Simulated scan of single mutants.
Amino acid sequence: MKAVRFTRYGGPEVLDLVDVEAPHAGPGQVRVAVRAAGVNALEWRIRAGHMQHLRPLALPAGIGGDAAGIVDEVGEGVVDVRIGDAVFGSGEETYAEHAVLTSWTAKPDKVSFEEAAGCPTPFETALRLLDDEGVGGGHTILLNGAAGGVGTVAVQFAVDRGATVIGVAGPANQDYVASLGAVPVTYGPGLVERVRDLAPGGVDFAFDLAGSGVLPELVELTGGAERVVSIADVGAADLGVRFSMGFHREKVPALREGARLAEAGRMTLPVTRTFPLAEAGAAQAASATGHVRGRIVVTVP
């Protein structure tokens, strides 16, 4: 089968489309014929070598963690899917014609394979952040980076729970953030004052999804570093802010909850750009700009 692999750390150019042996589903796993794979920031950071201390690799290695496709092999002990089912979920080396998933759920009929492929990591990340802080009805939260993949679904999950959401985004994305159900506000100097005008009762929790250097302002708005969480600023601990990672977290509940809302028409995660498998490097380069509304995905014919 064709798969994207790299033999050394570096820029997007180190990714090659090569012929490799197809993987097989082990116990508790399924294999899918991949229709599309989501592009996450973690993947280009792994490829660039930024994550060696946390996720050391034996090179050459494949890349990719999210996918949507058709189940074509079911591992021992799996009883909730059959060959031919359309699913989306997470596994390893998903930039490929076939990939093994360790977490999955049924793809809603109204959601395309491309849209579904972009969902697993944002679903898990957004719900992890909200659940860990106990966000619910009556809370006012601030999302820094509300127009990105995680931000888009975090707004919708939080609104579904009854929270009031203030979404920080660039000028071009103000209407988009509002369409998701958040109160939009722009980045830049004066953020604290703008947010206080919008939320005179204060902000209960703030989540940094963009890593744009605003943690001091988020701490000021919430009244304490313990009410701020980042997934994007590796210097968060210097300010007493928790840095949240999803390694070894169970994703299935988040996949099912996101799928439930999508089926009900209360969850959307638009695909901004698609790239063919052979252009995975270009897809990661686009992701690395950090100015993406919604999701980027790699498609497999």
Rank of each mutant, 00 (worst) to 15 (best):
M1H: 05
K2I: 00
V4A: 01
F6E: 01
G10M: 03
L15D: 00
L17V: 01
H24F: 05
V30W: 03
V30C: 02
A37G: 08
L42T: 15
L42I: 14
R45D: 11
R47V: 00
A48W: 00
M51W: 08
H53G: 09
L59Q: 03
G62D: 05
I63K: 03
G65Y: 05
G65T: 03
V74W: 04
G75N: 09
V78E: 02
D80V: 04
F88K: 03
A99P: 07
K110W: 13
S112P: 15
C119F: 05
P120F: 03
L127G: 01
L129F: 06
D132Q: 15
G136C: 05
T140G: 08
T140D: 09
L142I: 11
L143D: 15
N144C: 09
A146L: 10
A147R: 07
V153W: 08
V153D: 10
V155E: 10
D160R: 12
D160P: 10
G162I: 05
V165E: 08
I166C: 15
A169I: 08
A169Y: 13
A172F: 03
N173W: 03
Y176D: 06
V183P: 06
V185E: 03
Y187H: 06
G188L: 06
E193P: 10
R194F: 05
R194C: 08
G201L: 09
G202R: 07
G202S: 09
V203E: 08
F205L: 10
D208A: 02
L209E: 01
G211L: 02
V214I: 12
G223W: 12
G224P: 15
E226M: 07
V228D: 11
I231G: 02
V234G: 03
V241L: 10
F243D: 08
R249E: 12
R249Y: 13
K251C: 03
V252I: 15
G258D: 12
A264Q: 15
R266F: 09
P270E: 02
T274E: 12
T274M: 13
T274Y: 08
L277A: 01
A278L: 00
G290V: 00
H291K: 14
